[in-house]
Design a protein around this nucleic acid. Structure first.
Lengths: 334, 334
DNA sequence: CTGAAAGCGCTAACAT
DNA sequence: ATGTTAGCGCTTTCAG
């Protein structure tokens, strides 16, 4: 663990000024071929690399795209992989920052991260957040899965078509012959969760099945709440034969509770989720769910952002959701 | 997309000097309570956040841990998740940097990233690399899965016990009754791959089964090479009844080739992998493999790094590998 | 063709 | 208690 090698060290070793070294490194002209060669040699020998921090303070561009997340959980990292691979071969590096790890203050990490990195370290940002929607940032910004799908305002956004996905999975349950289909809700403060409920309701209406309010319970994406909701559903005098949970984790918890109570899945109860997290395919039985094309969404965010860096206006993109039928859903008993 | 708000803007709006604002923000003393209150108010109103870049140039500590990867692929991001969750509740934020995305020069990205971020932006680094082992860096460093397991030299390291894992999976195949067990090798320039081959050989020896050189072919972790290796194995006069591939992706390719040639897996050919990537559990049939405890390894790297930041010496940690028996392995035919 | 000097946003001495 | 100054590592005018 030695001291960092700075441009000064190079200048000294080469017997020239730091300005000359800088020019040599960055290919600016006004440097004699001999000097250029000489400096390059010293740089190689010393293994010098300019500090991203110092460079970014002085220069306008850093050629680094920032991916801002609350923390590195499966959803965020899958998006990150999409962003990363879409950026392959461009001049940009990727820097991902988890801004609410330390604080624990999950409130407003978006603005905080954006302020701390924007304007200097990164040329543009991709913000992974289901809630807040910062209205102005100091760099071009694309939000993924933001709450505000409200028309043309705010920054560019990329999100999945939640309602369509929920519609498709509910329709799948109906086509299997289910009539008493419950919905284990997500966080009702999230636009995405509300859209999923909407898709569920629409599918039932479309099939002429009245929505039984008792069959719609809160899950809140939180274990305790989901557990309670699952029990509530099964405690019903006329329990559902199928449940559409607002996300996979809720679906898995629903299955756990059903089994605990002696129900076989999918024979006695069908359960479907949403998201297609890695656990969904690894679960036994494998989970029927709706896939968010996360890698594609990340790539799309990159496309939008690069366009914006070239001066293009922001857009709002909705990506199609895909129904994935696996083994946690089947025809209702008898 | 507006201009960044700087400490100057705050100072001006508050009618005080920049230094005073800095003190107020960082809780240094020597600021009148009234002034403090006033400045804080302006900061809140303007939504000011100090620039990470500028702060890090001046200060010694940034309270940010860097995770340096070549690119964000599944292996790296699982490690990243482990690091991130281990850092929850500490004062540190996580910054992950993919340093070889732009260049395409996968050579020496480790040193480059380390030089560019170290010393200023990050207080310590966790380097995810299977190959190079930078000998000195400007910040405390922990390498995950490095080639050099060579004793006490170089930086701290965390790696999985590759030989033990390979031994276990080979022994599993033997216990199923297999005698002609092939090995589809990984990149022979990687220490980890060589260790896996060693574990394979040792298990055979231990069981008194001579190693048939024809049953050890190169896969190289690259599709083309793996495909060729798979065919070579099945072209043998006496083909193997089981194959241990050096990683899951190779195993999956092995299965694809076997099927293409009309072989049923696992009935006519057992195949096992290594790594337990997400695809392994999702594959049909689910893959028997060896799990690297990636999340735990990330957490362990954090533990080492935090200790080093407190002045502890570096260590070398080997984590246990876990045999995961699934459905791609079975007793040999008849 | 080269170097001196200014300045990016911020913090830490050091005055006042 | 507050402000002035210097400087972190680098790039960029601007003189020489």
């Amino acid at each position: 663990m030695s001291r960092r090698i700075t441009i000064h060290d190079v200048a000294q070793a080469a017997g020239v000024s730091v300005a000359t070294v800088s020019k040599a490194i960055n290919g600016r002209d006004g440097v004699a071929p001999t000097t250029l060669e000489h400096v390059r040699e010293i740089v190689a020998r010393l293994g010098y690399e300019s500090s991203l921090v110092a460079t970014s303070m002085r220069r306008r561009r850093t050629d680094v795209i920032g991916v801002l997340v609350a923390e590195f959980e499966p959803f965020a990292v899958q998006l990150l992989q999409g962003v990363s691979s879409a950026l392959q071969g461009t001049r940009f590096d990727v820097l991902a920052y988890a801004g609410s790890v330390s604080a624990g203050e999950h409130l407003g990490w978006e603005r905080r991260s954006l302020s701390r990195l924007g304007g200097t370290l990164i040329d543009g940002a991709i913000l992974v957040t289901p809630t807040t929607m910062p209205t102005d940032a100091s760099v071009p910004l694309v939000a993924i899965d933001p709450s505000a799908s409200t028309g043309s305002d705010g920054p560019a956004t990329v999100s999945v078509h939640n309602a369509e996905g929920a519609f498709a999975v509910t329709e799948h349950l109906i086509s299997l012959g289910h009539r008493r289909i419950a919905h284990l809700r997500g966080r009702t403060d999230l636009d995405s969760a509300r859209q999923r409920e909407r898709g569920y309701r629409r599918a039932l209406e479309r099939a002429g099945i009245p929505v039984d309010p008792a069959l719609v319970v809160d899950g809140n994406y939180r274990t305790a709440s989901t557990t309670a909701g699952a029990h509530a559903l099964l405690d019903l005098a006329a329990p559902p034969t199928a449940v559409f949970a607002a996300n996979d984790l809720s679906a898995i918890e629903m299955i756990r509770v059903a089994r605990e109570r002696g129900l076989r899945v999918p024979d006695e109860l069908s359960v479907a989720g949403f998201d297609d997290v890695p656990e969904a395919a690894a679960h036994v039985p494998q989970l029927t769910t709706v896939r968010q094309p996360l890698a594609a969404m990340g790539a799309e965010a990159v496309r939008l952002l690069l366009a914006m860096l070239d001066g293009a206006p922001y857009e709002h993109v909705r990506m199609p959701a895909e129904l994935i039928v696996r083994s946690s859903t089947a025809a209702p008993p008898r």
